[in-house]
Structures are given as structure tokens and as C-alpha cells.
Design a protein around this nucleic acid. Structure first.
Lengths: 152, 152
DNA sequence: ATAAATAGTTAAGCGGGCTGAATTATAAAG
DNA sequence: CTTTATAATTCAGCCCGCTTAACTATTTAT
């Protein structure tokens, strides 16, 4: 198979699917009164379960001062909890509140709507072909990401 | 096929691929001194070829004043051109300069790196399966998007 | 020809988000 | 015990992006 065909198809799909996802997601964010930075932060907290202030700042590419200030706003909005780490009382453990979880779930759901619509236009055999292909991709990308994550 | 399997697989793929794309893309944006809004705007101009100030604002979900101000900065940075529409002298035609095109291409290229890495871990038959599936998706999503675009 | 609608710009004001520097509290190293 | 390093916070100051409102220029409708 032509070396370019695969990558360019993948690229086109990413472009078009990201556009769909982002549009709905951004709209939901605006309605919730959250900025993109807030959402990226909340997702990072969701994924890690719990993280420190400086960790989060590093992940977002900002100073710990900026991270601290943003977290303060998120605490005021009742989206996260900031508790002391009993092992090292210098660090704060950042976790999502129930409200924070709910907001994120709504965001994910908003992003999912067009996928349901898309699913309805597909036959079972088409779905099977696509699912098979995507599972390969998901599997491979996870193996690909390990070395990258540890490097950063 | 289970109704949920397809959508949840699709959802997982979108989540993981968006994360990869966004990470590289955002890093490139910061290095170029462009904000997300700038990039979204530039991509919209690239896609439409040429658009008006208010159009762009509507697409971004902001007022025409905000759009105008942002475009002013992009003009100062030499990324776009703002010329008068000869058919209706009230409207301005916004187009990308060569520099603007170049910056976007670099952004796309930054986003594409991990796809090349991914491609190298796949056999030809896997690539074929995936390409087939993605092409179905791309085809269907394009048909799906027409009514949504016209509705907004 | 006049009135109304439309496209874009400008200015004032608000809040977000960032940085660097100073501060406090805790932990680790000498 | 003292020094040094680390985690988080606070503050001042800056720029960005947004809104509303006022304004100019052009087009369309009556």
C-alpha cells in the first residue's frame, strides 16, 4: 500500500473529527463558563486521579503561580478540592468534586452527540470494519505513548 | 453488533487521538506565539479561502468587534490580508498571507508527527483495514455535516 | 431622497491568565 | 541545628480577549 495513503487518510479523519468534537465541546464549555485551560486542567486531574499544583502547571506549560491562581478559581466554583498531602505537607492534592466530575461528563456527552448521529448512518458491517480498524489504532497508540510520557 | 460497542470505541479513539494531536499542536502554537483562538481563526480562513469579519466572529462565537480586534493583531503580525470586497464595499475580505499559510502548515506538520510514528508500527494489511474504515467515516461525516452547517 | 439595515472599526472597561519576585511552610542535606 | 531545596501562595503589573456602545461608510428598502 502506498506509504502516504494511510497517513493522509488518518490525517483527514483527525481533522474532520476534531472539528466536530471541538465545536460541540467548546460550545458546552462556554455555556458552563469554563475556558479551554480549565477544561484541559480538569481532564488532567480526572486522568491522574490526583495531582499537585506544580505538576499541573508543568503539564499546562505555565508557572506554578499561574496554576495556583487557576486552581483557586476552580475551588471557588466548587469543581475541585485542594487538600493537604499527609505524606508531604508541602504539597496539595488536587481532586475533582462531584460537581467537577459532572461537568466533565456533560462535556464528554456533548462531544459524543455527533457520534451517535454518525452511528445511525452506518450498517452493521460498516461498523464492524471501522471498529476493527480503530481497535488496532487504539492498541498501537497506547504502546507508542509509553516512551513519550516517561520522556516528558 | 452491540449498539454501544461502536460508539464507545469511536469515543475512545477520538479521546486518545485528540490528546496526541492537541499536545503537539498546542506546543507549536505557543512556540509560534499564537493563541488557540488565533489558530482556530486562521484555520477557518484557510478552509473558506476568504471570509468577512462578522462571519468569522459568528464562527468563533464572538461579537464582530472582538473579531475585528483579533484580525487587527493578525494583520500586524503579517498573517492575514484585509482587503475591500469590490462587490460590496462594506465588507472586508480576509485572506491568508504566504506567512500565514506557512505557519498553519507547520502546525499541521507538528500534529502529523505522531501519525507517522504510528504508521510505522502497522502492517500493510492493518493499514488497509483501517484506511477502509476511516474512509467510510469520512464519507458519512461529510454528509452529516451539511444540514448542521446550514442550520447554524 | 430619505430611512433603515448592514459591515466594520474604535474606545472604555472588565476579568482572565500569565510572569517574576517575595513570602510562608515543610522537608531534606550538611 | 543550620542550611538548602521544594511546594504552594500572594502580589503587582502586563497583555489579551471579550462586551457594549458609539460611530462611519455603504447598501437596500420605501
Amino acid at each position: 500500500m502506498e506509504p502516504d495513503t494511510f497517513v493522509s487518510t488518518l490525517q483527514e479523519w483527525i481533522e474532520v473529527s476534531m472539528r466536530s468534537s471541538m465545536r460541540h465541546f467548546i460550545r458546552h464549555a462556554r455555556e458552563s463558563g469554563l475556558s479551554m485551560s480549565h477544561l484541559v486542567a480538569l481532564f488532567h486531574i480526572l486522568r491522574t486521579g490526583s495531582c499537585g499544583v506544580t505538576d499541573l502547571g508543568d503539564h499546562l506549560g505555565v508557572t506554578s503561580a499561574a496554576s495556583s491562581q487557576m486552581l483557586e478559581r476552580l475551588v471557588l466554583q466548587g469543581l475541585i478540592l485542594r487538600t493537604e498531602d499527609p505524606n508531604d505537607r508541602r504539597v496539595k492534592q488536587i481532586t475533582l468534586t462531584d460537581k467537577g466530575c459532572r461537568v466533565l461528563e456533560e462535556g464528554i456527552h456533548a462531544r459524543q452527540g455527533w457520534m451517535d448521529d454518525l452511528a445511525q448512518t452506518l450498517s452493521d458491517s460498516e461498523k464492524e470494519t471501522i471498529t476493527m480498524g480503530l481497535n488496532i489504532l487504539i492498541d498501537k497508540i497506547k504502546n507508542l505513548k509509553q516512551p513519550i510520557e516517561s520522556e516528558s
